[in-house]
Design a protein around this nucleic acid. Structure first.
Lengths: 254, 254
DNA sequence: CGTAAACGGTAAACAGTGTAAACTGCCCAC
DNA sequence: GTGGGCAGTTTACACTGTTTACCGTTTACG
């Protein structure tokens, strides 16, 4: 039975400082200023070395705010999704994907921080945080809900490459998978493929390695999403979902 | 008639210095050192401010070496492609795609520099350089060769969204398109879609937002490429190309 | 309680970074 | 041969991240 200690005064104060650090960092990012220890510290009325009581390095600070930004962005995605009925996860995921794209295009710096921040290096905390990534949980959960409705096909465990089988049985990647029985973990493969597509176009658009007019028109994004529908057993709802997709896109029109 | 001046002594010297700058920069990157004006300058036996005679800012230096890295990498892709017969562009593009992935995974810093370097900001020179991007030309050319063989379908101009139509008729994006008659420019749409897929997976794998075991096994990459075959009229050659794909992948096996 | 250790913070310093201004010497064109 | 532009240096400024030594306050404990 977990010893549920009431946090001591010091601990609370420390936690509050942590919160202020990420809050101030997010502010800086939002103001298009660059994120530096000195900038964060001075805005908090401290000096830079003091931050070393809280983070081990500048990179760790970045990782921290990246996680927090992901959490915040996910709330946007959730809000977008919840404008559609609970029993219509296909519409919800469409809205969420559009919100994801819009977030990336309107806040490229933040997007870059969260999703282009290389992880490999210090297998340390970052991997751990990433595994908790909230946006990952959010999208996988929506996908699960779609599967409950359409029962789209997914590979069985022995159809998967061994490495992939290991990966879906014991995911390092953010995915709400505990409730998925092992024999159905092939679902995660479908998730990976969809995520790869979405992440791919959005990154391409966001980094600008793509004609600006194509970005503006969202044509590539739209086509990519539409191509994923069959994979999710949504081919039959194509027209309906394209309509929703267009509506969602026009919400954010310039 | 262009006044083809013989470059003066000074001009040649200047050009040589430019070359040395990018050469030294590439060396630094290759040694996993970080690219800084001072590092580049000192290795050339100069002081940092001297470099401002050649580049207007540190960012411009980065852009310069990015372009050069792209050129160098493209030579790798070309070499990989040329291990397959000239009349088999499908095999060639497969090998090139694998080479692209391998380059990205083995030199993530360089990949990041070339392909995640945001362009939007200084619409200046960078966009111009990007339009000349050699890897873009290389891949589009291979695609064109495939089309000559398979005659895969592509959208007509009036099937394209207006913005996309403009984009394919007057590409800002690197593409060898001058030789494609305007009415066939829908081909470039297919190119964009393929490029988006390839760029997407490779970026996903390279940034590490993906299970390491999935990266190691190349399963996601493989599946993505295979899914693009129908788009290029290559569905019938699937088995043959998958075999080539596996061979190419195992060439770089760890 | 009183004391000692842990905590949270500062000041100073080091090694880097990009960049601007002033200055110097050489090469080239007229 | 002489002036002008070019290539480079020196110096300086304003920033980075990070380490060290120090200092007061807060906490925990004998």
């Amino acid at each position: 039975m977990p010893q549920l200690r009431v946090p001591t005064r010091r601990e609370r104060r420390r936690e509050a400082t942590y919160d202020e650090i990420v809050k101030v960092s997010a502010e800086l990012l939002a103001e298009d200023a660059d994120l530096s220890l000195r900038a964060v510290a001075s805005r908090m009325g401290m000096t830079a070395p003091a931050l070393y009581r809280y983070v081990a390095s500048a990179q760790e600070l970045v990782d921290l705010v990246a996680f927090e930004l992901d959490k915040g962005a996910t709330e946007d995605f959730r809000a977008a999704a919840e404008r559609h009925p609970e029993d219509d996860p296909a519409a919800r995921v469409t809205a969420a994907a559009v919100a994801f794209r819009h977030w990336a295009l309107s806040r490229p710096r933040e997007f870059h921080l969260v999703f282009h921040n290389p992880i490999s290096a210090g297998e340390s905390e970052r991997r751990e945080l990433l595994t908790l990534s909230t946006s990952g949980h959010f999208f996988t959960d929506l996908l699960w809900q779609i599967w409950e409705q359409t029962r789209f096909p997914f590979p069985s465990l022995d159809e998967l490459a061994p490495a992939v089988r290991d990966a879906v049985l014991d995911p390092l990647i953010p995915a709400k998978s505990e409730h998925i029985p092992p024999e159905d973990r092939g679902l995660l493969w479908v998730y990976m493929r969809c995520w790869s597509s979405l992440y791919g176009v959005v990154t391409l658009e966001c980094t600008g390695h793509c004609d600006p007019r194509v970005i503006e028109s969202a044509a590539l994004f739209k086509a990519t999403l539409i191509d994923e529908l069959p994979r999710l057993g949504l081919a039959g709802q194509r027209d309906r979902l394209v309509k929703i997709l267009d509506e969602e896109l026009s919400r954010h029109a310039t």
